[in-house]
Design a protein around this nucleic acid. Sequence first.
DNA 1: TTGGTTTACGAAAACGTGGTAGTGTTGAAA
DNA 2: TTTCAACACTACCACGTTTTCGTAAACCAA
Lengths: 343, 343
Amino acid sequence: MKRKITLKQIAKELDVSISTVSKSLRNSLEIGEETRLKVQAFAKFYNYKPNNIALSLKNRKTKSIGIIIPEIVHYFFSTVINGIEQVANEYGYSVVICVSDDSFDKEVLNMEMLANGSIDGFIMSLSKETQYKGDFHHITEVINQGMPVVMFDRVTNDILCDKVIIDDKAAAYEAVQSLIDNGRKKIALVTTVDYVSVGKLRTDGYEKALLDNGIAFSEDLIIKIEDVDTCEITISELLHARAFDAVFAVNELFAVTIIKTANKMGLKVPEDLAVIAFTDGIISKYSTPTITTVSQSGEKMGSKAAKMLIERLEAEEDDDEEHTENYTTEVIETHLIKRESTD
Amino acid sequence: MKRKITLKQIAKELDVSISTVSKSLRNSLEIGEETRLKVQAFAKFYNYKPNNIALSLKNRKTKSIGIIIPEIVHYFFSTVINGIEQVANEYGYSVVICVSDDSFDKEVLNMEMLANGSIDGFIMSLSKETQYKGDFHHITEVINQGMPVVMFDRVTNDILCDKVIIDDKAAAYEAVQSLIDNGRKKIALVTTVDYVSVGKLRTDGYEKALLDNGIAFSEDLIIKIEDVDTCEITISELLHARAFDAVFAVNELFAVTIIKTANKMGLKVPEDLAVIAFTDGIISKYSTPTITTVSQSGEKMGSKAAKMLIERLEAEEDDDEEHTENYTTEVIETHLIKRESTD
DNA sequence: TTGGTTTACGAAAACGTGGTAGTGTTGAAA
DNA sequence: TTTCAACACTACCACGTTTTCGTAAACCAA
């Protein structure tokens, strides 16, 4: 077992100075051809590669970006990571991933762990608990330290930084409008608890679509679900009452649960009940019937976020501390993917 | 914007030496109480945290582990990451993730990128291409450099290292046996191309179960799929011929595709066709009918792999280069999760 | 020979930390 | 008064790089 070779070892072996080795390897003209080639040959033979850590320390940049997300076993988030990873790789960055598990404390801890030099910048989506508490001091802190942060999807207005989002409100509006266009009148909304920013926005879009079409908006048709596993009862009750003929669900898990419940009761989708879900994931594609969804383009969000972050990082390099705080919020386009759950 | 404060800056500010500051913060008895408290107060006020990079360089360990996987938008792999992440976090490690995209070159590149000091050890699952080529020099290399590697799921016998796998053959055997127990006679196997190690093993288990039960084994009933999108035709042809009354699919994507094809042809699952899939993912849980699967316990694999790696890392610390190469292969238990696609 | 320019390399600092060894002062015991 | 220990702190080294600056030797022109 041979440990990785260092400049120092090469220098000692060839009986030259460390600087000579370093310069030879970087093809500096300062070094005579003979020495240069000798060093290069030796380095190649021993497969010399500069130590990343030492480089990071010297250059004050790690060439890696930190990702903080609420969950990883989650189609949307994993597509986002995929998008980030691809761009990062392209630019020679690695990604280090931390999962907050939707816990505020973990989010804070993870950020602190990474903020002490491990990474050059963050890409993150807020945990539920963080959104609920409204406490963003940990994010402010890293930003104040001069570390760029890009937020995506679950963002907050309380923090000034680059953001990548979809127009949740407009997308919800479009989805609900399409249900109305198909003659649906009683459209239910199945959503999460309020403090999740995107849930709120989607509710707004839903409401606006109804009102714009002269349909009464009723709180009774809004079903707020905290735990997927226990929601079946609520849903089946409402279905029994035939309270609605269409559903807009803020995620595909809710949607598929609704469809299954409806099927059990002998209701047909889409004839008796049309369903549209947010988040175009794998469930929608393979459920029976397949589910009409609003594509959320996680990959595009990820790659966009990564590009914004890296751009800022490389810009910093030139301007060197010049602070042009022109934060932008990128809105990724969504579109409706029509499948079998609507007519 | 205040950059992170360093020992040096504190020292300068308080007009003491760097070592005094360092020792004060580590509560060394060498330093008088007055100075110690003054330094600590100052450090706390400026929220001093030691720089990870400097520590890594000094201690020659980064407290982070590298994960190389073929895909990330993939239920099984993301559950594995989840398992790894949890354990890693518990022990104060971060995880940096690279996706090989099932490409040999990317796998090599990613490993090289991380191997130069960025991480303390690897947890990886081989890319298809790597398994196809049978070229593992990049892995041998990092192991030779003294960097521990733990492989999971898609492993190879050509590399000596710790491994975490499931008993693919036994699991496949159990699944097929359960189909036979339910009176199925013509059981098809839908699998991937041969060079993927797990695909091969599952085929072996399938074959053995048939033979043990005195059922003829026929190549005609083995369907090798390279691309999911184009497999529907093959499947429907075989279904038309009523060539089989049960299917064992090596992943849930194949399974759900088969079910959908069967449904289109008016065949009922499980009455006309029983289906079991490997990999208990999200599709199986939400498809209609829900699919009986072999649970692969990705999370357990991940946490086990992480534990093995970290244990080895911490052991190295003590023995310091003492090489007790007692590699182990951990076999994670699987079990059959019965759902609607079988009777 | 002198002065000046190349050529070819080395020494040292810096990045931030932590540990070992040392240094100077004080007070008390011998 | 000398000696020794305790105290409180500083110097220095190492981790692996890159880079700036310095300098010796060689060469050339005057």
